[in-house]
Design a protein around this nucleic acid. Structure first.
Length: 190
DNA sequence: CTAATGATGAACT
DNA sequence: GTTCATCATTAGG
């Protein structure tokens, strides 16, 4: 069957296109899903990217073919989820920064120990925890419709372009995109 | 081997 | 606005 796939040839373009797509995780605990409402692009020749200094054991996944998951652990306690873009051998990816929860709300609340829906997935480490994404999903195919995967959603009407969050270098490059007015964007403005 | 740092989040003032 | 919990990865010796 023909699959509806997004254009993942370039991280910045893909970051915009992926807004409105749904991220689904069918786990043993249950199914959780949410609409992607905020993303950031990271290229290889980008001082803020993990791949800027070349390939390492940690970032090897970003050099694989587009459409797989790149999950990294940071600050000693947080997982962040990325969608790999570009050709095999090119280190780029799209960081998913926020979701609008659309399914499995109770499971998300349980995983996050948090009752407020608005605080469930409005940040990269928060959504990873709410969705149950960990290092075991590193390298997963996100378009096979099994386990952790993406599926098409409604195209948002208004997309805001802004600067990226939490980086010290190339902080002025506008490679953050989010759905205008959405309540689950981690940091409106920028 | 050692040391610095980080694509964060929560809890403060 | 600021501080800090907490550790894998990385660069350097």
């Amino acid at each position: 069957m023909h699959k509806n796939l997004p254009d993942l040839t370039d991280a910045a373009g893909a970051a915009k296109i992926l807004l409105g797509w749904k991220l689904v995780h069918e786990s043993e605990e249950g199914v959780t899903e949410g609409i992607i409402v905020e993303t950031e692009a990271y290229h290889q020749d980008d001082p803020a990217s993990h791949t800027y200094r070349g390939r390492t054991k940690r970032n090897a996944g970003m050099f694989e073919s587009a459409g797989i998951a790149y999950v990294y652990f940071t600050y000693g306690m947080h997982y962040c989820f990325n969608i790999v873009t570009g050709s095999k051998g090119v280190g780029q990816a799209v960081l998913v920064r926020a979701l609008e929860p659309t399914g499995g709300l109770e499971l998300m609340k349980h995983r996050r120990q948090q009752d407020s829906v608005r605080l469930l997935t409005n940040g990269p480490a928060k959504l990873s925890q709410a969705m149950g994404i960990t290092a075991e999903h590193y390298g997963n195919n996100l378009f096979d419709g099994r386990g952790l995967y993406l599926k098409p959603g409604l195209q948002p009407t208004d997309i805001v372009t802004a600067t990226r969050i939490g980086i010290s270098r190339a902080a002025d490059i506008p490679w953050r995109f989010y759905i205008d007015g959405n309540a689950f964007v981690s940091k409106p403005g920028g």
